[in-house]
Amino acid sequence: MKLIEALQYRLPLAAKLSILHRASGLIMLGLLPFVIWLFDKSVSSEVSYDAFTSAFVAGIGFVPAVIVKLAVLGLIWSFLHHAFAGVRHLWMDATHSVTKQQGHSSAVVVFAASLVLTVLLGAKLFGLF
């Protein structure tokens, strides 16, 4: 049993961040039709803007408003995480001086920044302030 435990590999935090960077890109790609619909409804006319705002209050067709808000919250997280992780990757590529400790600490900063901003924007989205 100890041999199996010794052979298990735990991904470092920086690797998990990199995987989530790719996943957040896929989430944004998958939600792109929803984003285009939201943008179209928000800028086409006053009537369509009212439909846009009512989507967050009454929902869209059979989809309740809370699902719409959760989809937007997922989009917010994926954008923030992808942006912060992308800046981190660009910084690592530009400096060429990344140690294991720098990778870990910058991953912590990216996770913290994206999650804190997601919680704040989610609180605003759900009307907590």
Rank of each mutant, 00 (worst) to 15 (best):
V57L: 11
K16N: 00
A23P: 03
Q102N: 15
D40C: 03
P12V: 14
L31H: 07
L17N: 14
G103W: 00
L7G: 09
E46W: 08
M92P: 04
L11V: 11
H81I: 05
L32K: 05
A6R: 09
L17C: 13
E46P: 01
A107R: 08
Q8A: 01
R22G: 00
E46S: 08
G59S: 08
L11Q: 12
A113H: 07
V87S: 05
T95H: 05
A55Y: 10
V66H: 07
A51W: 01
A55R: 13
G122I: 10
K16F: 00
V110K: 04
I19Q: 06
Q101Y: 09
A14L: 01
S42G: 07
F129S: 10
T118N: 02
G30L: 05
G127P: 03
A112V: 08
D93W: 15
A6S: 12
K41S: 13
G25Q: 15
V63G: 03
S42W: 03
S44C: 01
K124L: 12
L31E: 00
A83I: 13
V35T: 04
S114L: 11
E5T: 14
V109M: 10
A58D: 14
D50Q: 13
S114Y: 09
A112G: 06
H104F: 12
F39S: 07
K2A: 11
H21R: 15
A15P: 03
I76P: 04
S45I: 06
D50V: 04
F126S: 11
R22K: 11
I60D: 03
L120D: 05
F79L: 14
F129N: 11
V68A: 11
A58P: 01
S106Q: 13
T95S: 15
V68C: 05
W37E: 04
S78W: 04
V72D: 02
A94I: 15
F39D: 10
H104P: 02
K2D: 05
L90W: 07
F129V: 07
L70A: 09
L17K: 10
A71V: 12
V35Y: 10
F111V: 06
D93T: 09
A94Y: 14
P64T: 09
L120H: 06
A83L: 14
L73K: 04
S45N: 10
F39T: 11
V98Q: 08
V108F: 07
A15G: 01
F39I: 12
A112R: 01
G61D: 09
A55Q: 05
W37P: 00
A112Q: 02
S44I: 02
L3N: 12
L125S: 15
V57P: 02
L121Y: 01
W77S: 09
V116I: 14
S18H: 13
A58V: 09
L7T: 04
L26S: 11
D40S: 11
M92W: 13
W91F: 13
F34R: 00
